[in-house]
């Protein structure tokens, strides 16, 4: 299990490759990547991702430990960035490895649903109109009930 919280970007291909290669205990690797989406008007200049150092790492490790308990996983990885991000930038990724694909897909969904509303990150969007904190969505909170 690995958690990395970092300001700098990451090499998506290299991360998935390193996570996948050299293992013979898992038949399936699933990865998910979050990228900064522009506004419908295309006027997003940047996004500031704030976090709570210390609690962030612990919350993500806790979410990984819960996933390892619930599914037959051989490994999982969460990378999440903070700081200044621009449209198209990588924000975060998760990867899961399991003997069969069902567990890998489900655990990846679980990691995403939990880290969206249980890991202490906050997004502020800066557009040509000004700056605004991104509000949490009810559907993100509701997504947790299915687990």
């Amino acid at each position: 299990m690995t958690v990395r919280v970092q300001e700098q970007t990451f090499d998506l291909g290299a991360e998935v490759q390193a996570f996948t290669l050299g293992r013979d205990d898992a038949g399936a690797v699933v990865s998910f990547t979050g990228i900064v989406r522009n506004t419908p008007d295309g006027d997003l200049e940047r996004m500031e991702m704030e976090h709570y150092p210390g609690m962030t790492e612990n919350a993500l490790k806790g979410i990984e430990a819960e996933a390892m308990k619930r599914w037959n996983l051989k490994d999982c990885l969460i990378i999440h960035r903070y700081g200044t991000l621009r449209p198209g930038d990588l924000i975060m990724m998760v990867a899961t490895a399991s003997p069969h694909r069902g567990d890998a897909f489900e655990a990846a969904m679980f990691l995403m649903d939990y880290l969206k509303s249980r890991a202490p990150f906050w997004k502020k969007e800066f557009t040509t109109d000004g700056a605004e904190w991104v509000a949490a969505k009810d559907e993100d909170e509701d997504a947790l009930t299915k687990w």
Binding site: M55, H80, P120, W133
Partner: peptide, 29 residues
């Protein structure tokens, strides 16, 4: 609210606590 870096509720006791944090609902991912 988080008390000593664990999410909790506003009824949580403060005895022996070092750190309390207040923030809006989280928007990671």
């Amino acid at each position: 609210v988080a008390v000593d870096q664990e999410l909790t509720d506003f009824g949580a006791p403060l005895a022996g606590v070092r750190e309390v944090a207040f923030f809006p609902p989280m928007t990671g991912g």
